[in-house]
Design a protein around this nucleic acid. Structure first.
Lengths: 218, 218
DNA sequence: CCCTGTGAATTTGTTCACAGCT
DNA sequence: AGCTGTGAACAAATTCACAGGG
C-alpha cells in the first residue's frame, strides 16, 4: 500500500511514536509526575524534542509555554486520537510456540489490548483455553468473526499458510494485520499490515553489528 | 541514533529489504527458478521494481539486460554483503514465554541464525536445555561472553530490567541488540538496536484499522 | 524489444531557528 | 527565562523516466 494522508499529517512513523509517548506518559503518571516537557519525552523516547512537538501537532493537543504538557491530559489526548482509550480487540491465528507467547504477552501486559479469540487446526489445542483465550477450530474463523466482528488479526502460522489466513481474515472483516510469518502478504489497499519479521530484523542487526558503523536506533 | 552512511548508500530500510529479497530468492532457488527480474522480486516483496534495482546498486551486483538476475548469484551476493552466508550468532536473555518462543523460532526456521546460549535468573530454568540451547545463570553473562564473544544480544526480559541487561550485554562486547522489552534503550552511538515493540505495532495497526485509510504496507 | 542502471524530480520525514506566550 | 508551535531549510527515501546493452 502507498502512504495514507491523515487530515493533519501523521505518518506511520509518527503514529508509532505516539504510542511510545503514551506508554512513557502512563509510567510518568504512575510515578505521580504532573507535567512533562517535549525535551523530557524526547530523551525517554530516544528522539529529538522538535520531533516530539511536531508529532503533537497532529493531535491538536497544546502544551503551555514555560510549563510543558499535562501528563494526564496528553495521555488521554493521544488515546483519543489513536483510539486506544477503549480496549483494542484482536484475534490470533496459529497457537504454536509463538502464538502462545503472544497470547501471554498481551494477557499480562496490557489492559487496553485484548485478544478475544484464537484459532488453530490442531485438535489437541482446539477447545482449550490458553492465557484466558479460548481456542476455536480454524475452520470456524468466518462463522465466529461474523457473529463478533474484530478489526485486527494476528497471524502466527507457518509461512505457507500465511497468505490464505490473511485472505480469510480480510474476507471476515479484519482491517489490520500483525504478521509474524516470514512472508510478504498481498492485501487490498485499504488493509494495513505490520510485519514482525524476526529474521529480517535479526539479519539487519547482524549487518550493522558486524559493519560497526553509527546507526539509527530503530 | 543518527543515520549511518554505508560506502555506497544502503540505509536501514534497504538492508532490511535485502534480507527479504534473499529469503524470496532462497525459495525461488528451491523451486528451481534460474533467473528473476526486478519486477518479479518487487511483486513478491511488495515494493516497486525501481526500489529493487536501487537496492541492488549497493551490492555492486549487476543483472543482465533482457534477462534479469541469476537467483543463485544474487542470493550469494546479498549474503556476502550482509554477512549472512556464514551463520549469525546471538545470545538471548530472558527465557520466559516469549524467550522460549524466540528460541523455538530460530531453532526450527533458520540454519543461518544460531542462538548459542541463553540466560535467565530463574533457578528452575537454569541448567536446562530449551530448543537445543543451554540456559546459563544470568549472573554469568559476562564470564561466558568473555570466553566466547557474540555480536548480538536478544533481550526478552521484563521492561524494568531491559536497560540493565542492555548495559551488561554491551559491556560484554555485543554490538547489536534485538529488544523485545517495551522500553527505549539508551545505548552508545556505535550500538545498533532494533525494537520489536508488540504494543506499539498493535496500536499502530489499530489506528489504521479504525481510521480506515489507505496505508502503506509496512 | 525487454530488461537493467541511474541522474533527476519528487515526495516524505526531520531538524533548525525563532516568534510568541506566560 | 523557559517553554511551545511552526514556517522554512534540509536531508533522506522513493519514484520517474529514459539511456544503454544484449
Amino acid at each position: 500500500m502507498k502512504n495514507k494522508q491523515l487530515p493533519n499529517g501523521a505518518s506511520v512513523k509518527s503514529i508509532r511514536r505516539l504510542s511510545v509517548y503514551r506508554r512513557i506518559l502512563s509510567r510518568l503518571i504512575e510515578e505521580g509526575v504532573q507535567t512533562v516537557r517535549s525535551h523530557d519525552l524526547a530523551e525517554s523516547a530516544g528522539v529529538t524534542a522538535a520531533q516530539v512537538r511536531r508529532d503533537f501537532m497532529a493531535l491538536g493537543y497544546r502544551g503551555s509555554p514555560n510549563r510543558g504538557y499535562s501528563c494526564r491530559d496528553l495521555f488521554t489526548s493521544i488515546g483519543d486520537f489513536m483510539g486506544t482509550n477503549v480496549p483494542v480487540k484482536a484475534v490470533l491465528v496459529g497457537v504454536g510456540n509463538l502464538g502462545r507467547a503472544i497470547l501471554g504477552y498481551f494477557d499480562t501486559r496490557s489492559v487496553n489490548i485484548k485478544i478475544v479469540a484464537c484459532f488453530d487446526i490442531d485438535q489437541q489445542i482446539v477447545g482449550s483455553e490458553i492465557f484466558n483465550c479460548y481456542c476455536y477450530p480454524q475452520a470456524n474463523l468466518e462463522r465466529i468473526l461474523k457473529r463478533r466482528p474484530v478489526p485486527i488479526g494476528i497471524i502466527a502460522v507457518p509461512f505457507r499458510h500465511a497468505q490464505e489466513v490473511a485472505d480469510r481474515l480480510i474476507a471476515a472483516g479484519v482491517r489490520g494485520i500483525m504478521n509474524f510469518a516470514p512472508a510478504t502478504l498481498h492485501v487490498p489497499e485499504h488493509i494495513y499490515v505490520e510485519d514482525m519479521d524476526f529474521t529480517a530484523s535479526l539479519e539487519t542487526i547482524s549487518f550493522y553489528a558486524s559493519h560497526g558503523m553509527l546507526v539509527h536506533q530503530d
